[in-house]
Amino acid sequence: MLAYKDDKDFYESLPRKRIGVGALLFYKNQLLVLQPSYSNEWVLPGGTVEAEESPLEGLYRSIKEELKLQISPTRLIAIDYIHNRDVKGEYIQFLFEAKELTERQAQGLQLLKDDFKEFKFVDLEEATKLLTANAAKRLESALIALQDGQVTSYLEDGNLASFRAEMALL
């Protein structure tokens, strides 16, 4: 049995998970996607949540840093747990929806970080072809859940989680 000096010692011993955020930003029914400078695949606007920052604060900061844009998130669409399968390790991704961009916002977009080559607005079918596999699966599953009437969906590796089988075992 491990002995801890105090609460601080105990909590410092617990595992930590990286948290990411992404936003569905639409303009004229087209989704905004970004191409990172380090990849041929595309991503949704967003980023990694920093220490002592909430997911929503991280979303606001990331979008402002990436695109010089202030957004108005309308709801949390999905929470996605991604297992440790590559160099990224395990992480949790929050996916938000925001109000449709205005003409002024869409025309004023600027990539402020050297992290990205370009951005564009595409239809959902094209987005799923361009996005990383994880982001595309997350987008597809979240949209299916929304069509089925779910307000927020819980995903694992981009797939809608099934609670029925696990609950039957209890």
Rank of each mutant, 00 (worst) to 15 (best):
E100R: 01
E97F: 07
Q93H: 13
L111P: 00
I92T: 15
D114T: 14
I82L: 14
F119E: 01
G108Y: 00
I79N: 02
Q107V: 06
D80Y: 08
G89C: 07
E97K: 11
K117A: 10
E100K: 03
E126K: 09
L112A: 09
V122W: 03
L124Q: 07
E100A: 06
F94A: 02
G108S: 15
E100L: 01
T102V: 07
D80K: 09
K120T: 10
G108K: 09
E118N: 11
D114V: 13
K99Q: 06
K113Y: 11
F119A: 07
D123I: 01
A106E: 00
E90H: 08
A98G: 04
K99R: 08
E118V: 09
E118S: 14
K113I: 08
V122F: 05
I92K: 07
L109D: 00
K120F: 07
F121L: 05
T102E: 06
L109E: 00
I77R: 05
L112F: 10
E103S: 10
F121G: 01
V87L: 14
F116N: 02
Y91R: 14
A106I: 02
T102F: 02
A106R: 01
F119M: 06
I77M: 15
A106K: 05
E103N: 12
I79F: 11
D114W: 12
I79S: 10
E125I: 13
A98R: 02
L76V: 10
F119N: 03
L95D: 03
V87C: 11
D115C: 04
A98W: 03
E97I: 00
E118K: 10
R104P: 03
K99L: 06
A98M: 07
D114N: 15
L109P: 00
E126M: 08
F96H: 05
G89E: 12
T102C: 04
E125Y: 08
E103K: 14
L124C: 03
L101H: 00
E103A: 09
A106M: 07
Q110H: 08
E100C: 03
R104Y: 09
A106N: 01
F94W: 14
A106S: 08
I79D: 08
F116T: 04
N84C: 09
D115I: 05
E118M: 08
L76C: 13
Q93V: 04
H83K: 15
K120V: 04
I77T: 11
V122Y: 05
Y91Q: 07
V122L: 09
L111A: 09
I77Y: 06
K120R: 15
K117F: 13
Y81F: 15
L124N: 06
K117T: 15
E90L: 08
E103I: 08
E90Y: 05
E103Y: 12
Q105M: 04
K117E: 14
A98L: 07
Y81M: 15
I82T: 12
L111Q: 06
Q107T: 12
A78W: 03
L101R: 02
F96N: 02
E118W: 02
E97Q: 09
L109F: 01
Q107P: 03
D86I: 11
L124G: 03
D114H: 11
H83V: 13
V122Q: 02
D86W: 11
G89V: 09
L111F: 12
E118C: 10
V122H: 06
K113S: 15
L95W: 02
E118A: 13
L112I: 11
L109C: 01
K88I: 12
I77K: 07
Q93D: 10
L109N: 00
G108L: 10
E125H: 13
I77E: 02
I82R: 10
A106D: 01
Q105E: 14
F94T: 00
